[in-house]
């Protein structure tokens, strides 16, 4: 590229940047949409890009330099030399070995002790009080997300909804999928857990904890969208595909005298993914 062209491009680019940057400020002050500001900013940077490119191509004299490296470091000799140097320079210190040992012992213990309070970042004092009661217990009513109790005519056959334990709607592991099956297809085992065709499972996937929200009505399968695990509703939510290996815990249901659905008792298996140490 000739010097003249390069100069023209460099100056042109800089002028483009100046005008675009000013346009950007004006666009900001006039509260224009983001893409107008973005367009001005793009042009501004493009101007600099063109300018620098022109400069590098046409206005810099090519040059090469050669630097000598330091002598290649010796292998074992260097380490000893460094250690010996430190020792030699510490000659003014009486009992340097004792100094080193004391510093290490005292400083090390102090350093470790100083880190221990970090523990409360993981377990703040409030959570270490008396254990909260399990959200799902015998007799707890099922409620929807707004807290209204679930009546036995809430779902039609073939429907699915999400329910929570009364008093613990915000508990992140307490959500439950409620499905209403045709009473004739409710599995025989645990039939008393499913009054009027209602069957309930924990919504927390036993793989890594995403909500198992998808339901394929005709196949009676629950599907987790995160890693495509599928659970067979007619077989106790046993996993039939995907990486989950444990079934979703089932919640035993009962309908009380007022027609509201309640839990007969809490979950018999741990909810959700297995934490380390959980048997």
């Amino acid at each position: 590229m000739s010097e003249r062209t390069a100069l023209r491009l460099a100056v042109g680019g800089a002028i483009l940047t100046i005008f675009s940057a000013l346009a950007f400020v004006v666009a900001f002050l006039l509260d224009t949409p983001y893409y107008a500001m973005g367009f001005c900013a793009t042009l501004a940077f493009a101007g600099i890009a063109v300018s620098f490119w022109a400069w590098s191509t046409g206005l810099v004299t090519p040059k090469r330099v050669v630097e000598q490296r330091d002598v290649a470091p010796q292998t074992t000799g260097a380490e000893l030399a460094l250690g010996q140097t430190v020792v030699a320079e510490s000659s003014g210190l009486t009992r340097p070995e004792l100094f080193a040992v004391l510093s290490l012992a005292a400083g090390g213990t102090l350093g470790v002790a100083a880190l221990v309070p970090l523990r409360s970042l993981a377990f703040p004092p409030a959570t270490e009080g008396p254990a909260k009661p399990e959200p799902w217990r015998a007799g707890v009513r099922l409620v929807d997300v707004d807290g209204a109790p679930i009546h036995h005519d809430w779902l039609t056959i073939g429907a699915i909804g999400t329910v929570f334990p009364e008093g613990a709607i915000d508990d992140p592991t307490a959500s439950v999928v409620l499905i209403r099956l045709d009473p004739r297809v409710v599995p025989r085992a645990r039939r008393d857990w499913s009054p009027e065709g209602y069957i309930a499972f924990s919504k927390i996937c036993t793989h890594v904890g995403c909500p198992v929200a998808l339901y394929r009505k005709t196949q009676h399968e629950l599907l987790c969208p995160c890693h495509q695990s599928r659970f067979d509703v007619l077989d106790g939510a046993r996993p039939i595909a995907g990486p989950a290996s444990r079934p979703l815990p089932q919640l035993a249901l009962t309908i009380d005298d007022t027609g509201v659905l309640r839990a007969s008792h809490g979950f018999l298996e741990p909810i959700g993914p297995a934490a380390w140490g959980q048997t």
Partner: peptide
Amino acid sequence: VGVGMMPKFGERQ
């Protein structure tokens, strides 16, 4: 209706 594989959402829901 709950067409195909879709769940069927009734009036109460």
